[in-house]
Design a binder for these strands. Structure first.
Lengths: 141, 141
DNA sequence: ATTAAATCGGACTTAATAAATCCGATTTTT
DNA sequence: AAAAATCGGATTTATTAAGTCCGATTTAAT
């Protein structure tokens, strides 16, 4: 199993935005979070299309969160970028890839389903606000 | 995110073994679960080295579970095959890949950690016995 | 008006690695 | 001795993610 760089970068970018509610250019984010500029550009566009951030074009343009950080979950970000959190043939809704013939009798499928549920539950419960307004005992920087 | 074919096949193979406690050849498993023979051979060897199945060489040889199916978890299988359930740089114990410089201040790291926990908890709670002796009424969810 | 600084979209290239295959050696049963 | 297995290492192939590039468009500031 593996988390894509897109999710990894994307979540970083979006928490960066969540720290201050203003417009940030891709350059600012890329520098701040050390993400390859061109790649991040693509990621931000994806997030825009998914309705999670808004873009402002032209000079002095950039990106900002579309909703308050408390209304955006980690799950929102990851599904926007990776489209399937757990792309296992028999669990996926999108059956684009080779379809499992044994689906009906497959015992191990239960594992993927339960795992899927656990992941969804976990990710749905984390908002960007949770990440940014972190427990102050830990650090105040 | 993605589950490797190895985990996918491996779990299938091992649930296959769990259904009957005798020795199965790779050929039997491969045919039964429709897994590429040569590839499955490798997977079984990995599981053997991990101490989850035992192999018997020579004619009439094959593989069987090393422990009772109630003592082997889905987590056991997946970690044996994929070595890291969630290979995210900042969460991985093995820092072989490019190391995250911002580890200390990284906010999004919390997501990966929580997710990791949720996955581990889920997978640890599923034994092969659970999968094989499935509740006939399917009321247990 | 012109220029500079952005996003946008699509095409392309590169790199990584998973997936699959192949082969010869060894072990064990019949 | 032959047949049926596992074993282990090397190799090949395929997939796709990751990253790059370029030209078009939009917008703000000078």
């Amino acid at each position: 199993m593996k988390i894509s760089a897109q999710s990894y970068y994307g979540l970083k970018a979006v928490t960066f935005l969540a720290k201050e509610s203003r417009v940030f250019s891709v350059k600012e984010i890329a520098d701040g979070e050390r993400i390859p500029y061109d790649y991040l550009e693509k990621i931000m566009q994806k997030l825009t299309r998914a309705g999670l951030v808004t873009s402002k074009r032209g000079s002095a343009g950039g990106y900002s969160l579309k909703r308050p950080s408390s209304k955006i979950t980690a799950k929102d970000i990851l599904t926007a970028l990776d489209e399937a959190i757990l792309p296992i043939l028999c669990v996926m809704s999108n059956k684009s890839r080779s379809y499992c013939i044994m689906e009906k009798t497959c015992l191990s499928k239960n594992v993927w389903q339960r795992m899927q549920k656990a992941i969804n539950y976990s990710l749905n419960s984390i908002t960007l606000a949770d990440l940014v307004y972190v427990n102050p005992k830990k650090s105040k920087r």
